[in-house]
Design a protein around this nucleic acid. Structure first.
Lengths: 97, 97
DNA sequence: TTTGATAGTCATTAATTTCTGACTGATTGA
DNA sequence: TCAATCAGTCAGAAATTAATGACTATCAAA
């Protein structure tokens, strides 16, 4: 859309959508897996979770890793950039909630 | 919806919608007026601005003031709570943008 | 070898959000 | 007194987002 590099707008765009904040919160506790997320986040669905994961990956919040070991699966890990949000959200929490 | 007092979810809910972040940013510079906003925020419309202002007022970010002087008009001012967001967004800006 | 799990995609439908245009009613300046 | 400005509301249409269900393809265990 427009150019304006507004931090509020930027943040809002990054975590926009119904499921991203929940996915983010879960990602802080450890790597995520697609089907596990689907079970953990009640009311969610494949399509939306898939889109949210792809978005967050493209924004560099999550990193998709194909684990080529043992049972061969895919993991989504919180990136450095993603981790940098944590203290800000903590400050937010202590200020408003 | 659910109970979970998640700061990300909370923030997102507070600034949800197409126009709230722009309204917020403008409110930092001084009091807002309905028709002026409509002109300043290009692409916006009465209905959406009215709803956004009402929401932000209910969330305690803005305060509606009827100025019973001279030309008699209505102002929306950034509240204490609203102002508390400013340093957080600044931190956000310096970290990510 | 059949079953179940993982990790998705795709097209369609449903739900939610936003926009448009018409209207209201008070105030103010010419 | 007439026109314009301000600050909205409301119903319906349009646009955007999210959900459903069917389908694909790989892997592993029984």
């Amino acid at each position: 859309m427009s150019d304006t590099t507004c931090p509020v707008e930027g943040l809002l765009k990054m975590f926009a959508g119904k499921w991203k904040s929940q996915i983010f919160r879960l990602s802080v506790d450890g790597p995520l897996r697609f089907n596990a997320l689907l079970r953990q986040i009640e009311g969610s669905n494949k399509q939306s979770i898939a889109v949210a994961l792809k978005d967050m990956e493209e924004q560099g919040i999550l990193e998709k890793v194909v684990v080529t070991q043992k049972p061969l699966h895919i993991e989504y890990n919180l990136s450095e950039k993603g981790r940098a949000f944590v203290p800000i959200f903590q400050q937010l929490e202590s200020t408003f909630f």
